[in-house]
Design a protein around this nucleic acid. Sequence first.
RNA 1: GGGCGUGUAGCACAGCUGGAUAAUGCAUCGGCCUCCUAAGCCGAAGAUCGCGGGUUCGAAUCCUGCCACGCCCGCCA
Length: 589
Amino acid sequence: MKLLQDMISPHLEHLLSAKGVKKGTWESMLQPSREASQGDLTLPCFPFASVLRMAPQAIADELAASFPPLDALLSVSSVNGYLNFKAHPEWLTNAILSGEIYVGNALENSGKTGERVLLEHTSANPNGPFHVGRARNAILGDTLVRLHRLHGDDVRAEYYVDDMGKQVGVLAWALENLGKEDVENLLSEREPPSERWADKADHQRVRWYQAAQLLRNDADEARKSEIEKEIGQLVHASEHGDVGVLESFESAYSPVLDGMLTTLSRLGISFDTFTKESTFVVNGTVSELMKTLDSLEISGTADNGAGYLDLGQRGLKGKTEFFYRRGDGSSLYATRDVAYHMWKWGESNRLVNVLGEDHKLQAKQVGMTLEELGQQRPNVLFYSFIKLPEGKMSTRRGNVVFMDDLLEEAHAQASAVVRELRPEYDDEKVAQIAEAVGAAAVRFNIIKVSPEKGFTFRWEEALAFEAGSAPFIMYAHTRACSIARRVVGLPVSELERPTVESMPEGLVELLRLMCTHNDVIERSVREQKAHLFALHMLELANAYNGFYRDCPVVQNDKVDSFAFSISEMARELMRSGLEGLGITPIEEM
RNA sequence: GGGCGUGUAGCACAGCUGGAUAAUGCAUCGGCCUCCUAAGCCGAAGAUCGCGGGUUCGAAUCCUGCCACGCCCGCCA
């Protein structure tokens, strides 16, 4: 609780420096209490024992006894060598009602902090529909975009479009060379495509991609080498910046990308800018870059003329050679990525990338190369893959859960719940609620766990609508909305602030949590841990439910002005917080 | 073989810049709708923090060895 910390730090400094303990040695130790019942902030006194030659307990006792009384403090206590500070609920009330808690807006750039962040995420190859595995990147990335905005940074969400190279080449070749019948014959043993998505280009065209991949593996040798030759020529041309080929690639992948973006938009995910990988080949920055790399001290050349950097000289372990140019002179994906990053640094003063854990080595190589060129490394958030109970997901093998299907299923399940719980709602209302709840449940299920943890996708978990899920938070928010509606037109009491003695537990808990709200956003953004904020939102909703239980806002058709003010503030925080998680804060459910 | 990551109640997951009785949800057991939406609230039970050693006043957290799982180690993207 930074609010409280700012109040007590000067006094602690005064007391401790008189004893010869410097600020640097204790400042970082003043932390939120692990035991919430003991207080809001705690200073463990054990480390001072040897310096002061006193027992920790005695130090804590002495500090507690000599700490000056402050409006901000309800109590200072000493327990087992810990110095505990408890915030005064009346002071917390004052902080909240006087607007010291920043509500923020997750949907717009405010420029409050002056930070300009370029956040690249998703950037999936446009060769087929989004599956749940790929979606972790998009959900993680979009949530970080929103949290940065909530924090007050200016953010640009960017999609790096892989518009050249083999994957797109295969798709373009297939669309050019295979008829619908060829494709269906080749894929006759696969599950047929879902009727539901028959009109969606990503679902259509991925069949061509899959068919081509099958052919490349299973055709007779003559046909195989012919196909490889044709695809190879396309890929080669694209990598040398052949504009005609790049245009044909674009017309192959564009409808697929559009389909993928349609899926993402249903999850509330959108991008500000799209940058094509080929840009840096066509405009010459990649070949410029390769020349610069050639001149570096750690640069080397292989027998066939390929260029690499020996990153082992800079401490990289394992495979130390990082190739940036092929023997034929063309660039590699990573080379273009370096050029892309140099461009990005010109656009912004902070870079964040969201990448799958399979890109760790690559990202390290790109980062080290940037440093070698006198540039900074970007911040990278890595995540582990989502698996199915049957194993790894793969578009190629067709072992996937499509995001489109998951969202449809989530909508259907949510719809069933709403119909059962609220039989009085009409179809339109049910559909609107089900859409918000379904998408929220899917997002939250992924965002609430820390990214480095691999997890297995299970339908029953993704579609749980109970405590610990998005609907739980949404529900607390609708309660606050319901109160706000109820209050309209009723007589309102004078605003009378209760004293500590008359504050029920549920109110105090809510006040404390609201006063940590901004701290959690700050930390989530700084450490790139969206799950911390997700868990905080669960706690906030839980605390609101406690307040709802203990503090009736409307009683005997009269409005308690104080309770209503707190409820409204909590409603605002829940609304903006839900938006920060990419959840639509609906007013009824 | 080398590098990186993960291992916490039956299941899932938080805590990992060392600090108190390891937090939360599901599942289990019990209680609460004449009262602002019960998708809720209150309570009970449930944990050798993968295993062994070390550092420390104090270790889930740091170091080290081992075990299990995941990802990577292409002049692919």
